[in-house]
């Protein structure tokens, strides 16, 4: 392949979308052509610039979207229900329905109102006690997640069909598959950073599962809590030479707001020297605000006999 062909192929080469033979041709050419290597660096720099300006939706926006979706679906599901403020059962169902999504913070006040409302109305309808009402199988520690139907009969009674969730305690060994799955879910529990720190801390020593490693990569990139990100980084230590992990670490290094996280990422990246790491460190030196992180970065580049700046 000549320089013109290689230059044209570089964008697809960068994305790993060339066919095997062409890819090998590009690689052979790159090994001996400084000008095409420069073009390759420019392709990487373009990708890095675009990555730095990528937008990540915040937790509030996501929570707002989920809440609006839950309400829209509720409206679709109950076309015949009157939803006027004077209709207590409508208010009831609406408030309960907002419990459909316990992870949505915006829904929780409405859910709390609903629980109070249930107590209030139950007291009114049953004369201050639950006697006369049949709460068959409704456990005292259960939480009502949604009301499915309300059917009054002509004797003055009403039958309410509801879904309930109950808090359970489970225990088991870390190598138990069910425990591991619960921990994976807990590691993504967006409302409770303490649970996430604990779960990631436990899972980090079991990084041999692809699912766990994927969770750790997700946590290190997106978790809003630096404690969780640091735990996830610990778990990725033994994979510091894996290309996918290194790409993620490079991203984290350039975008993470926490200096402690950035320092730990530098420590992980320099365990294995490659051209991409040098490029990332050089980029960081140019933009790093924190003096200590910048110094660590410069030291790492010196150790690799690399220049401190980019061309």
């Amino acid at each position: 392949m000549n320089c013109e062909e290689v230059t044209k192929a570089l964008p697809l080469y960068y994305y790993g979308e060339l066919e095997g033979e062409v890819e090998e041709g590009v690689e052979d050419h790159l090994q001996s052509c400084a000008s095409c290597q420069t073009e390759q660096e420019r392709q990487r720099a373009l990708a890095a610039a675009l990555d730095r300006h990528a937008l990540a939706p915040g937790a509030d926006l996501l929570a707002g979207c989920r809440h609006e979706l839950a309400r829209a679906i509720y409206r679709e599901d109950t076309p015949a229900v009157r939803r006027t403020a004077s209709d207590p059962w409508g208010l009831f169902r609406e408030a309960f329905h907002s419990l459909w999504h316990p992870g949505i913070r915006l829904a929780q006040p409405a859910g709390a109102v609903a629980l109070l409302a249930l107590g209030f109305f139950a007291a009114r309808f049953t004369g201050g006690s639950f006697s006369g009402a049949s709460f068959s199988g409704l456990a005292p520690d259960s939480i009502i997640s949604s009301i499915r139907s309300v059917q009054p009969d002509n004797t003055g009674r009403v039958q309410i069909s509801l879904d309930e969730t109950r808090r359970r305690v489970v225990s088991g060994r870390l190598d138990d598959e069910n425990i591991r799955r619960l921990l994976l879910a807990a590691a993504r529990e967006q409302d409770n950073p303490g649970v996430r720190v604990e779960s990631v801390g436990l899972l980090k020593d079991q990084c041999n599962s692809a699912e766990t490693r994927s969770m750790l990569l997700e946590a290190v990139l997106h978790d809003p809590n630096p404690g969780v990100r640091l735990k996830a980084l610990e778990g990725l230590k033994s994979f510091a030479t894996d290309p996918e992990v290194r790409r993620t670490l490079a991203q984290v290094l350039l975008k993470d707001q926490n200096p402690g996280v950035r320092i730990q990422v530098i420590d992980l990246l320099i365990t294995h020297q490659d051209a991409a790491t040098i490029g990332v460190l050089q980029t960081l030196v140019g933009k790093e605000d924190n003096g200590y992180v910048r110094m660590r970065c410069q030291n790492a580049l010196r150790d690799m006999n690399a220049s401190l700046g980019t061309f």
Partner: peptide, 28 residues
Amino acid sequence: YDHSVLRLAMNLLRSPEDARDVYQEAFL
């Protein structure tokens, strides 16, 4: 899927209002 859907809409449209609309319409 919703996080990646919202991220796609946000990056494509560069507007949280439009991204929110896309999210709602898509999942509905």
